[in-house]
């Protein structure tokens, strides 16, 4: 084994120098000039291949091999350095593009349905799943449809239950409830069975304040057929209450009076705010009244074209504004038709 050839020593020195320089390089311009210096065709490593004849013949393969080795090492180190610098450049660029992510998002234009449109749809959906279909009827009604045919004759004490807007045309009033739709539906469909949802605006003569409105929505339910019982009414309304107010809500129906039903009742749900303990929403009562209901009165069935000895049915009526007021803690009923966008855009 001969001593190290002078060429090898030179190569080693060159490698050491190149590696040292590479180590200190920080940007791609310096890297490119380093490459030109050490790895281009005219670079120093290349010149060793030309100088091979200077060495003894028997050393030449070893020196050539070593020169190749140095070249490969430097190339590999170059690539490594090059990718490191690229990564660093990218990192620096990305860093410069950093946003204040807490700045507000660009406002898009979201439209909204009126809250009562949403609540009405929710009610329709629940009842539709039980086979009740929407049936609409006019808002300006005859006294006959609104009262007489619903077993509320003129001067009957029950008339006190409704403060009515009369039009200047005799016998024509603003409907005080959606119940005239019961008579209309029955007269249209008799003797077929009926399951309808009767929705819409109703009117009552009142002085408007935070809890009284002259215009309000009502949704009624009417089922007529053979063998429809009070138990069916209870079952249907309890299902509704669970869908509307939550699976675990407790309900009760207590006796009440509406001339177009008998037996008549009102349904309360346990206050879903306080769970029945009493709070400001339920006025300390623990129960919230949500709807009126009852078995269709025989006089109404007869007026609708159904024999009360054969057919029976139930009706129920609820106030969608009340549902919203309770659910969203709306303290002023005037918000509904006041059309203040600051209110409407909260839904």
């Amino acid at each position: 084994m001969s001593e190290k050839s002078g060429l090898i020593q030179e190569l080693e020195a060159l490698q050491a120098k190149a590696e040292l320089e590479l180590k200190n390089i920080q940007d791609s311009a310096a890297l490119q000039s380093w490459r030109a210096e050490y790895l281009s065709r005219s670079a120093e490593v290349m010149s060793f291949f030309k100088r091979l004849p200077e060495a003894p013949i028997e050393d030449r393969p070893r020196i050539g091999q070593f020169a190749n080795q140095v070249k490969t090492i430097l190339e590999t180190q170059f690539e490594k350095k090059e990718s490191a610098i690229k990564q660093a450049d990218l990192d620096a660029n990305l860093q410069n593009e950093r946003l204040d992510v807490t700045l507000p998002g660009r406002e898009t234009t979201r439209g909204r349905l009126h809250i009562q449109t949403l609540v009405l749809r929710e009610i329709y959906r629940i009842f539709a799943e039980m086979g009740f279909q929407v049936y609409r009827s006019p808002e300006v009604e005859t006294d006959e449809n609104n009262f007489e045919l619903l077993n509320i004759p003129a001067y009957h004490p029950a008339r006190d239950l409704w403060d009515t807007f009369y039009t200047t045309k005799p016998g024509v009033i603003m409907r005080t409830h959606t119940s005239p739709g019961q008579v209309r539906a029955m007269r249209e469909f008799a003797p077929e069975p009926i399951r309808v949802t009767l929705p819409g605006m109703c009117y009552r003569y009142e002085q408007i304040d935070a809890s009284h409105e002259i215009q309000f929505n009502q949704v009624e339910l009417l089922a007529v057929g053979k063998n429809i019982t009070f138990g069916d009414m209870k079952g249907t309304l309890e299902e509704f209450a669970k869908r509307m107010y939550g699976e675990s809500v407790r309900t009760r129906i207590r006796p009440s009076y509406f001339p177009f039903v008998e037996p008549g009742g009102e349904m309360d749900v346990e206050c879903f705010v306080c769970g029945g303990k009493g709070c400001s929403v339920c006025g300390g009562k623990g129960w919230l009244e949500i709807l009126g209901c009852g078995m269709v009165h025989p006089v109404v069935l007869r007026n609708g074209g159904y024999d009360p000895e054969v057919y029976s049915g139930f009706a129920a009526g609820l106030g969608p504004e009340r549902i919203s007021m309770l659910r969203y803690r709306i303290d002023d009923i005037r918000n509904f038709w006041g059309n203040d966008v600051r209110f409407l855009e909260q839904f």
């Binding site: 039980m130 086979g131 279909q133 469909f189 077929e192 069975p193 009926i194 399951r195 089922a223 057929g225 053979k226 063998n227 429809i228 019982t229 009070f230 138990g231 069916d232 209870k234 079952g235 249907t236 309890e238 299902e239 009760r252 129906i253 207590r254 006796p255 008998e262 037996p263 008549g264 009742g265």
Partner: peptide, 25 residues
């Protein structure tokens, strides 16, 4: 019948699901 229901107690009438014929949809 209303008087019977009232004294029997609305609370004591069991709830049932409508079994009557479904009207045309």
């Amino acid at each position: 019948i209303e008087e019977v229901a009232r004294l029997f107690g609305f609370e004591n009438i069991p709830p049932t699901r409508l079994q009557a014929e479904l009207p045309p949809q």
